[in-house]
């Protein structure tokens, strides 16, 4: 029970300090799940993230569920998911009920301007850490750049990019009997 509660608390903190899309939770996820509690490795977190991007639902909740399940089975998955959901519920309820014009307050807008910059800096740091752990061979670097370009330059759908990579990886595994191949 103690560990379940600490999972709930960790994911509550992660939810509370995630601003924006699921990827902005990565710096918090790395700190809480990988460094502080060692519930999963960075590679595993990345795997969960990859699956969560192409399965139904909100990425942050799905990733939390994966981590929770890995550690404590179904109950762990549910506690982690509840933890990441709860801050949203409380904060949005408070805003919707009390502060309808909250986003029009100038000081709040400035604060969020600064928060967006901090989130940008944190994600940049996470990307550097991720590339150190994920890129192990020269063609991994090519693949990483190709996926970046496909998403940032050619605006391809994330699901299509992930699904294509999986299909190619599986095909290469069987056809060549080697560890992986290149993405189209």
């Amino acid at each position: 029970m103690k560990e379940l509660l600490s999972m709930f608390a960790a994911f509550f903190r992660i939810g509370l300090f995630t601003f924006g899309g699921g990827y902005s939770m990565l710096p918090m996820l790395e700190r809480e799940v990988v460094v502080r509690h060692s519930w999963a490795t960075m590679d595993e977190v990345l795997d969960y993230f990859a699956i969560s991007q192409c399965t139904p639902g909100i990425i942050a909740v799905n990733t939390a569920t994966f981590v929770g399940y890995k550690r404590r089975g179904v109950v762990g998955g549910i506690f982690s998911a509840l933890g990441v959901i709860m801050p949203s519920l409380l904060v949005i309820l408070a805003i919707a009920a009390l502060l309808t014009n909250f986003m029009h307050i100038e000081l709040i807008q400035y604060a969020f301007g600064g928060i967006r910059i901090a989130v940008g800096a944190l994600i940049l740091g996470t990307v550097i850490k991720l590339s150190r752990s994920a890129v192990k061979q020269w063609w991994h670097a090519l693949l990483c750049v190709a996926a970046f370009a496909a998403s940032a330059v050619f605006k391809l759908n994330t699901i299509i990019i992930v699904a294509t990579t999986i299909a190619c990886a599986v095909a290469c595994h069987f056809l060549l009997g080697m560890r992986g191949g290149k993405k189209a």
Binding site: G21, C144, A152
Partner: peptide, 21 residues
Amino acid sequence: STFSVLRPAVTGLIAAAAFGV
């Protein structure tokens, strides 16, 4: 082996998201 190929690609996708922010 599938995940070892997927990881660099997902890193690229996260880099693209960071780039957007």
